[in-house]
Simulated assay, not measured.
Amino acid sequence: MKLRLALLSTLVAAICIVNAEDKPKTDSKNMPKPEVVKTEEDWKKLLTLEQFEVTRMRGTERPNGAAYAEFEKQGEGTYYCVCCGAELFTSKEKFHSGCGWPSFYDSSKAKGVLEKVDNSHGMRRVETVCKRCDAHLGHVFEGEGFKTPTDRRFCINGVALKFVPQGGEAPKLLEIASDAVQQKKDEVAKEGGLEPKK
Rank of each mutant, 00 (worst) to 15 (best):
K197G: 14
D151L: 08
F154P: 04
R153G: 03
P24N: 02
K29T: 05
A189Q: 13
T10R: 10
T78E: 13
R153P: 06
V54M: 07
I17M: 08
A86W: 00
M123Y: 03
N64R: 02
L88W: 01
G167S: 03
L11M: 14
Q51M: 09
C99G: 11
E87V: 11
R58A: 13
K185A: 14
S108Y: 04
S91E: 01
E50Q: 13
Y68K: 10
T78S: 11
G100S: 02
K29R: 08
E70V: 05
E87S: 03
F89L: 09
K44G: 06
Q166S: 13
I17A: 08
L7V: 13
A135E: 00
C83Y: 00
K38A: 09
M1L: 14
G98C: 03
P149I: 12
H96I: 14
K33V: 11
S120G: 05
G112V: 09
A67M: 04
F104H: 04
I156P: 08
T90S: 09
H121Y: 04
A14C: 12
G59M: 03
T48M: 05
K44V: 06
V117W: 10
G122Q: 08
H136E: 06
C83P: 03
D134V: 00
E41H: 02
E115W: 00
V54Q: 02
